[in-house]
Simulated scan of single mutants.
Amino acid sequence: MRGFSQLSPTERRLLLEVFWARTSARSDLAGRLDFSKSKINAAITDLIGAGLITEIGPRPSSGGRRAEGLRVTLRDGLIAGVDIRATHMDIALLSPDMSVMARHCEPISVRGEPEPLFARLRDVLDLLLRQLGQERERIRMIGIGVPGPVDFESACLATPPLMPLWEGFSPRQALAADFDVPIFVDNDVNILALGTLWHLSRSADDFLVVKVATGIGCGIICRGQVYRGVDGAAGDVGHICIDPNGPVCHCGNVGCVEAMAAAPAIARAGAAAARSGESPRLLELLQAHGALSPEDVGLASREGDPAANAIIRGAGADVGRMLATLVNFFNPSHVFICGGVATIGPAFLASIRQSVYQRSLALSTRHLAIRPIPHPADAGIVGAGVLGFLEAI
């Protein structure tokens, strides 16, 4: 069987089109790609022979003869999608249509050395393969998201603020000895953006995915593709300064939006309000749990606690100030909000919207929608799978 490197430009374009469309008919492909029927048929025959696509039977008729459907099969292989976050790791084996075949999620910390975590990742991949009765050879490609800047070409972490012990570490090299397949690594927000692009079926081509969690980052989809910048650092918006007199960030600068509105900042503000007597409800939660989480602050806010509500709204306004700059600069159709902080209550998203619309130019917001990310539960692992497929072929 031919490898991906042996695909002709026509075959590669056709394979990508079938992938994004989920299922396609020959006539549909010819129209979308502006290929002749003979060119399409020859390429399809070659791809079927290579085991990369398969015919799945007649599609529903719209009048006349029913067209034969086509779907990516990758020689009956699987794609591994790995979504590593600051506090948990989500691992899945996916079919080429991004259906989840097996999945495992567990809490982790990225503060320590990366090698033990990747030893665990190898064990989990083997566990998932055993659940499906498959061997390692069935995995055709691996996509990995990590919570830090990535030099995309080398697949190495580059000065990651949340995980300094990962500096120069290559997830690709860590897995290469056990999995002889294409392995690609990207920032976790970029894979969330790819997962969103997949779930939207490419109905939007220019949008932002903003994750507010332990850190704050942004995935940028520009003209239907992830924009990474020259060195892979595009979207590191958490270190945009919104207050030159603000607190010191772990990156060493002051007033970064991450230092003022990410999960640790919300928890600290909640603890301060509890200890000062400003919020009896937060003090009650602090005494019950021993420490406050952003979820605790969100709970108190939803219960009507004024201090907690002010903290949540203040964090949303801070994120909105940063986003207003991006909206004026990029003019996206959508800004999708995700991450643990995004789920703590409606006041957070409402404050983001208010701040963005107040501070952005009218033309930049004319068609702008700010909403939660679609399919948040699997956007990361699906995006990692999409990354693996797109880069491998």
Rank of each mutant, 00 (worst) to 15 (best):
M1S: 15
R2Q: 13
E11C: 07
R12V: 09
R13A: 15
R13Y: 05
L16E: 15
V18W: 11
R22I: 06
S24R: 11
A25M: 02
D28I: 11
L29I: 11
L33I: 06
S36G: 15
N41H: 00
A42P: 00
A43D: 07
D46W: 00
D46P: 01
L47S: 05
I48L: 07
I48R: 13
E55G: 09
I56F: 13
I56A: 11
S62V: 01
G69R: 08
L70C: 03
I79K: 05
V82D: 03
A86R: 10
H88S: 15
A92S: 14
S95M: 09
D97P: 08
S99M: 13
V100H: 07
H104M: 13
E106V: 14
I108E: 11
S109E: 10
R111Q: 14
L121P: 04
R122L: 13
D123R: 13
L128N: 01
Q131W: 03
Q134P: 00
I139W: 06
R140N: 10
M141T: 14
I142G: 07
I142D: 04
G145I: 08
V150H: 03
D151P: 01
E153D: 12
A155C: 11
C156K: 14
L162D: 07
F169R: 08
S170F: 01
R172D: 03
V181F: 04
V181D: 02
N187E: 07
D188R: 06
N190C: 10
I191C: 04
L192P: 00
L200G: 03
L200D: 09
S203E: 12
A204K: 13
L208F: 10
V209Y: 06
V209P: 03
K211Q: 14
K211V: 14
I216V: 15
I221K: 02
C222K: 15
G224Y: 07
V226E: 02
Y227G: 13
G229I: 09
V230C: 04
P247G: 11
G252A: 04
G252W: 05
G252F: 10
G252L: 09
N253Q: 15
C256E: 04
V257W: 06
A263L: 10
A265W: 00
A272R: 15
A274Q: 05
A274C: 12
S276W: 12
L286P: 09
Q287A: 09
G290Q: 10
P294I: 00
E295N: 14
D296G: 10
V297K: 01
G298R: 02
S301M: 04
G304M: 12
G314C: 02
G316I: 05
G320L: 08
M322W: 03
L326M: 15
L326I: 01
N331P: 02
S333Q: 14
H334D: 13
V335M: 09
F336V: 03
F336C: 04
C338V: 13
G339S: 11
T343V: 07
G345W: 04
A347I: 06
I352D: 10
R353D: 05
Y357G: 06
R359K: 13
A362I: 04
S364E: 05
R366F: 05
L368I: 04
A369D: 08
I370P: 05
R371V: 13
P372G: 04
P374A: 11
A384K: 08
A384V: 08
G388M: 07
L390V: 14
E391F: 08
